[in-house]
Design a protein around this nucleic acid. Structure first.
Lengths: 120, 120
DNA sequence: CAGGTCTTTCACGACCTGTTCACGGCCGGG
DNA sequence: CCCGGCCGTGAACAGGTCGTGAAAGACCTG
């Protein structure tokens, strides 16, 4: 049950509670202050059931229209979201980058209990 | 609605779950971080039903085009995949080399027992 | 208008990737 | 033995992708 659980328009993931209808996000009970883009991005990610969402799809769902080559809006807002989430729920990481694929939303402890940092 | 949950695109082999559509691979529940080539190679292997895949075929399916003589890309990425799989699922070997023929994908315990006790 | 907030764009740098080399082990044939 | 083909593996390299801080626009509100 750490996976996304859709209940009408209330999404619960980890210590996050997203009320899509109200435009409200609770992190561990406290309300987050998000901008429109930040909120849209969060909802789009949270609704993807832990799968990887391609940047093109994210852009289309949140911004509408097609993602132009060179547009870095997504990166910037992913960053902003990460900062706010991290600020609210320390030692949890929600947004994971999959280079060349897109982003994945899932709660994972930020401390690597079994370090696997061997990239390459 | 979010088209994300498609069972026809999910391959399950041993403790591996490959969501070909999402570009996502779960090893024992945890998400694996693969590059595009690594993922393509894994999918190509996993879709071969445990049979041996010739290097020429692998190259054509993953890289596209013909395998040039002297090209060692496949070897390198087979290695990278092995490392990541092994790191995620110790004591299981998935990629088996058949010298002169190609590679075969199947979960086998890394410590070969000759007992009949081995189920599958 | 003036000030504040939200978005987009820019610039720089760190990290990631795919490819190619280089070296060495394994193995069967001469 | 020695050789040559085949494969494992570490490393170098060039280019691409992504993270991030800050500037430049847009927008909204009184």
């Amino acid at each position: 049950m750490d996976a996304a659980q859709r209940h009408d328009d209330v999404i619960r993931i980890g210590a996050l509670e997203i009320r899509a209808a109200d435009g409200l996000v609770l992190a561990g009970g406290r309300a987050l202050t998000l901008s429109v883009r930040e909120f849209g991005l969060l909802v789009a990610l949270a609704r993807s059931g832990g799968g990887i969402v391609r940047r093109e799809d994210l852009y289309e769902r949140v911004w509408g229209g097609e993602l132009r080559t060179g547009d870095r809006s997504i990166d910037v807002y992913i960053h902003k979201l990460r900062v706010k989430l991290e600020e609210a729920l320390t030692d949890w990481r929600f947004i994971h980058t999959h280079v060349g694929f897109g982003y994945r939303f899932a709660p994972e402890p930020s401390h690597p209990f079994h370090n696997a940092a061997t990239n390459r």
